[in-house]
Computed example of a mutant assay.
Amino acid sequence: MTDELDILDRARAKALEKGEGLTQEEVLEVLQLPDERIPELMELAHEVRLRWCGEDVEVEGIISLKTGGCPEDCHFCSQSGLFESPVRAVRLNIAELVEAAKQTAKTGATEFCIVAAVKGPDEKLMAQVGDAVAAIQSEVDIQVAASLGTLTREQAQRLKDLGVHRYNHNLETCRSYFPNVVTTHTWEERRETLEYVREAGMEVCSGGIVGMGETLEQRAEFAVQLAEVNPTEVPMNFLDPRPGTPFQHMDVLPVEDSLRAVGAFRLAMPRTTLRFAGGRELSLGDEGTEQGLLGGINAIIVGNYLTTLGRPMERDLDMMDRLRLPIKALNSAV
């Protein structure tokens, strides 16, 4: 067995020099690195993202078109109608979505994502999303993404035709651990939707949540299974235990484990946009977030998330300015 002290040298030769992702066994070695080697890991991950993704950081805002009342039982999610969660069903109108897109664009964001808490979109929701995309594109210079749950092949093509350029459908966790997280649908169903998205010509956005009780072996499995999907973007969430959900009593992932995950995911996917998403405020805090942005992350969601509060947009933008991280301009994204 190769000494674990060699793993970052091997990662340098593979991920940095060739742009090739690490294997599951190699990712596991990275996740098992001792705390004192985290700065070295972060430095290498940063070099990898600069070489294969460039220096720009992509900023995105998200908003929920339909919040709460979801029929699925994702154990981390307070939007499930099956749990005694404080989140209640709410729908936004088109004018509210357009205004939210305008506010997002003012931050310099290149992307605005419309999200709905559903198993999959019905005809009414598809029509509403179509109206929303048209209204936003007529008034705001921003790309529109969507996350509406499981799609049919026809729905994926329709969203592409409506002007949605990127579709998010998270695998959430690795295939082997998924039944511990969701029981109302399968990992394979999620994977199938991603294939429909790719076939339709939309960019594939798929990530998930680390810190839901999975082992390090399963975390490594998850990183490699995401790499196999070949996503344009991977949102990295860290579990924020929500009241009323089955995972409400889980511990928040320690900052060291969170940073190791960031570095490992970057080395598993050298060429992918890796985006900080929900839970970073708890797991990483201000200092850890900065370390992540200088350790492999090259995109960030600003403002609030779907049912949890994020940091004020201005605070994140000030942080990126202080770190001298350029925000990706829209004209370089189209």
Rank of each mutant, 00 (worst) to 15 (best):
G288I: 07
R260G: 10
S138M: 11
A45N: 05
R280H: 15
L323D: 11
A156L: 02
R49Y: 09
L28E: 04
L5S: 15
Q218L: 00
V144D: 00
E55W: 00
L284R: 12
G201Y: 00
V98Q: 09
S332A: 05
E233M: 12
D161W: 00
V90F: 05
W52A: 10
T193P: 03
D257M: 12
S176C: 05
E203G: 12
L5C: 13
G310I: 14
I7H: 04
R12M: 02
I136W: 07
Q143V: 07
H185S: 06
G279Q: 13
T23K: 00
R88W: 07
L194S: 12
N304T: 11
Q143P: 07
P235L: 12
E123Y: 01
D161E: 14
M250K: 06
V30G: 08
L148C: 02
A132C: 09
Y177N: 03
P34Y: 09
L194R: 11
D161T: 01
S85L: 05
S147C: 15
S85G: 06
G279C: 14
L65T: 07
T215W: 00
S206I: 09
N304E: 15
G288H: 07
F247R: 03
T110E: 05
G292C: 14
L50P: 08
V30K: 02
H165R: 00
I297M: 13
V182C: 08
G54I: 01
E4S: 15
G244P: 09
E203P: 04
I7V: 10
A146Y: 01
L97R: 09
T107I: 04
V30E: 02
A116H: 01
V262I: 15
I327C: 08
R49M: 13
F222Q: 03
E290M: 15
A223G: 03
C205K: 09
T289Y: 12
Q291V: 15
E217C: 01
Q157I: 01
R198E: 14
D286S: 11
G61K: 05
R166I: 05
V133H: 01
R219C: 06
A135P: 08
A268Q: 05
V164M: 00
T67G: 07
Y167L: 00
C70D: 14
L293Q: 09
G208Q: 07
V133F: 00
I62E: 07
R219S: 07
R322T: 13
G130H: 02
H249M: 08
V98Y: 08
I297T: 11
V210Q: 07
C70F: 11
I209E: 12
L282N: 13
V115Y: 03
A109N: 03
A45G: 04
A223M: 01
Q218D: 02
N170L: 06
G21D: 02
G207I: 07
T67W: 03
Q32P: 08
E139H: 12
F83A: 10
V252D: 04
